[in-house]
Design a protein around this nucleic acid. Sequence first.
DNA 1: GAAAAGTAGTTGCGAACGCAACTAAATGGT
DNA 2: ACCATTTAGTTGCGTTCGCAACTACTTTTC
Lengths: 152, 152
Amino acid sequence: MAIPYTDLRERKHPYRLMHDVYVQLDYGDRVVLNHYGLTTTQYRLLNLIDPAKGLRLTKLSERLLRSKSQITRTIVALGQMGLVRSLHDGSDGRAQLVTLTRKGEKLRNQANKEHAISLQARFSFLTTSERKTLVGLLDKLQHGMAKYLEVE
Amino acid sequence: MAIPYTDLRERKHPYRLMHDVYVQLDYGDRVVLNHYGLTTTQYRLLNLIDPAKGLRLTKLSERLLRSKSQITRTIVALGQMGLVRSLHDGSDGRAQLVTLTRKGEKLRNQANKEHAISLQARFSFLTTSERKTLVGLLDKLQHGMAKYLEVE
DNA sequence: GAAAAGTAGTTGCGAACGCAACTAAATGGT
DNA sequence: ACCATTTAGTTGCGTTCGCAACTACTTTTC
């Protein structure tokens, strides 16, 4: 993939910047996670699961902002790799609880280490206080938009 | 187990927030652009073209952060809709210049109007000065990461 | 000025994804 | 109890996309 490029004429648009930064983040992640044979969605999914409790598909779908069908397929793929296992949820015959296998937990921890280093490097261009400000603004934007899209 | 900065389960992580905000932005765009039968990439592409001069596929690829093959396919689709037209670039036998048709220019302007209104609403949860700060931080992050990914 | 290296764009292929329609189980109203 | 509605998850299908391999043209090198 080509290294992302920025058109200087338009680069100050928040909409465009969000897009470009996201694409860059995604690209950097893919490079790292490729070492572990994981897609970004698979990696994010593994990190949402508490191995002791497990998690339902619907919950995963909400947290990952992916369709339920996509979660089903991701779980199947991770299952075939031996990283997750699905258990019946006793309290609800329709539901299933996805848990990590020993192998899954181990891989997740390894990937987390490398990912943390890479992420640290990529965010190192912002100071701690800048990062804090960014988080605050994004959080505000996120909540505002969530409300807006709901009402609409 | 607590990796201080990188635990993705942390809701306030800038990485996670970037993802969530991006998904929301993208979703909002799809809703608006659907009225015009355009995908977000198609819409962004139309907006990069100067109807008087045209633009090469490679340039479009760089500016849109999409692969050249994807640009080829997008151009084909837009061509079939009668929104763009490809001309030979006299100065280079390999290249072609993509230009807007009258119809494409008209549609772009209409879509721009509605998109601007929607975007305004979605960003209205931030004050002007907050937006400015956000732009500054994202811009810094974007440039830093671009440099980081290049060296890699 | 011929061979090598680089660049513009295309095509084949498979991966990730959303949506709509579906099954099966749970819930709620009457 | 019974039927309607909701909810958990799956499947079929079409779309967007990146990558690798390719053609055709251009630039560089010797």
